[in-house]
């Protein structure tokens, strides 16, 4: 893993690293008249049983990074270990990306192997409060509910790594808090590692075990900050103080 100037990169892997990412360079239109460098020296790992939050300005190449992690874009310099095909990665997209012509249940079921057990699915739907919605079409759902279905589809994979792209954005406070609690509960219950991309720094400080701060184009890792206090015992004032501190240290990433 290359040293990207990541703060404390040596201690980054207290938990077992479920996924190691080292993108040396990703260029769009290489060889063309105007190549654009989207990512440079972005190295981090996602620990099992932890929530790692990736924070960066919009257009920072986070979508590019996620596509590489998912194995959708093999054209980059660097490595993802284990290979995305073997890493057991599930993804909940920012736009829920449900098939509008299939019911909630079919959407979740289609992403599963045919051998998936019915009881597991029942339990999953129940735990996410989706049981009454199983036979509805996604068009009938609110954004919050659709995100829940998208989360259910990802969790149903029993993934080793769960990637969440802005999972709480554009939700009202109540729905966001409920969905956040579901994610935290799922991480604590399983040993899966979560990588969450967000713009919301306070939200990240509230639930993350580690923050990754990424600069704008090209996306480069500026800092990797562990949050020591346990999730459950973080007070409002502590979160606010951390936020102010980070805004001072990384003014290009976090607005004061």
């Amino acid at each position: 893993m290359s040293d990207a100037g990541a703060e404390g990169s040596g201690s980054a892997d207290r938990g077992d690293a479920a996924l190691r990412v080292a993108i040396a360079r990703k260029v769009y239109g290489a060889g063309g008249p105007e190549p654009v460098e989207a990512v440079r020296d972005l190295a981090f790992s996602v620990a099992a049983g932890q929530i790692t939050c990736l924070i960066g300005p919009s257009g920072a190449g986070k979508t590019t990074t996620l596509r590489i992690l998912l194995g959708l874009d093999p054209d980059y310099e660097g490595s993802v270990t284990p290979h995305p095909d073997e890493a057991g990665i599930a993804m909940a997209f920012q736009e829920p990306r449900l098939l509008p012509w299939r019911t909630v249940e079919q959407n979740v079921r289609l992403a599963l192997p045919r051998t998936a057990r019915r009881q597991d699915l029942d339990a999953l739907f129940a735990s996410l409060g989706l049981t009454p919605w199983r036979s509805r079409y996604p068009g009938a759902l609110s954004l919050g509910m659709a995100r829940r279905v998208s989360l259910a589809r990802a969790l149903a994979q029993k993934p080793g790594i769960l990637i969440l792209d802005e999972p709480f954005v554009s939700l009202d406070d109540t729905s966001a808090a409920a969905l956040r609690a579901l994610v935290v509960e799922a991480v604590d219950r399983t040993r899966m590692g979560v990588l969450m991309v967000t713009h919301n720094v306070a939200e990240a400080i509230e639930i993350a075990d580690r923050l990754l701060l990424v600069s704008g184009r090209p996306a480069t890792l500026l800092g990797s900050i562990p949050l020591e206090i346990a999730r459950g015992s973080r007070e409002r004032s502590w979160i606010e103080a951390r936020r102010t501190d980070l805004a001072k240290r990384f003014p290009t990433v976090i607005a004061g």
Partner: peptide, 24 residues
């Protein structure tokens, strides 16, 4: 294209892709 990416991410096999993503 977003559904295409979703289908690839969830490793839909060809039959599933045709029946549930393409045809609809």
């Amino acid at each position: 294209p977003q559904l295409e990416e979703m289908a690839r991410t969830y490793r839909f096999d060809r039959r599933t892709w045709i029946a549930h993503v393409l045809v609809p």
